[in-house]
Amino acid sequence: MEEMVFEIKRTDENGNMKTQSYNVPKDKVSTVLEALLYIKENLDHSLSFRYSCRMEICGSCAMEINGKPHMACSTTTDSLKGQKVTVAPLKHFKVIRDLAVDIDGFLEKYRAVKPYVIRDDDGKYDSEILQTPEQFHEYLDYSLCIKCGICMAACPIEGSDPNYLGPAPLAAAWRYIADNRDQGKKYRLEIVSGEEGTSRCHFAGECTEACPKGVDPSFAIQKLRSSMVGLEFQRLFRRR
């Protein structure tokens, strides 16, 4: 029977690291997540990782596969070249155990950009707010983020400055600014124009390349910047 070798970078609860290899029969599994479950069920009960929906929508199982961040559930074994697969926890996150990483800091950053519609008439819900299909498509792509953290692992700035807000939170800021139902643009621009905001981005575009859901955070960040430039110009001319 044909086998695949999974080389997994493991970390125990005390922070000791080791690399362990497992042979998984190729015809028993079709994705990396299935392979991990196979290992956990049959070969090594102590392997730890996060997983849930197995259809690339819940964002649990982001990890580094063959050196790049991917969702384990949607990475099919057919798409991997060669017999050997290396699996490691997501970069730039603190490892809890094996492949499970601490995403609390990431969610705090997300929370920091006020990722919800801000309206003066909040609390009156007797009809919808009109939104044409054109307005709808202004933000739709940015609303597809599953908070998996892959972009945070791909971003080179996150690697050297852990305080940088990062691609997903900034994309979320733009997602709500671009939504015509929202009136919170000025609050959000103030947050993202701070020292740890858009100015840290150098447009490597790795977040966009890595995103499994086709969100384009690097584009969103540049949009935020141009909005800020626009705002500054307005201020300049108002002063005169």
Binding site: V117, T132, F136, Y139, R181
Partner: peptide, 11 residues
């Protein structure tokens, strides 16, 4: 809808 859910729209 007021909270930002992208419900699909009519023209």
């Amino acid at each position: 809808d007021h909270w930002g859910c992208p419900w699909s729209r009519n023209p």
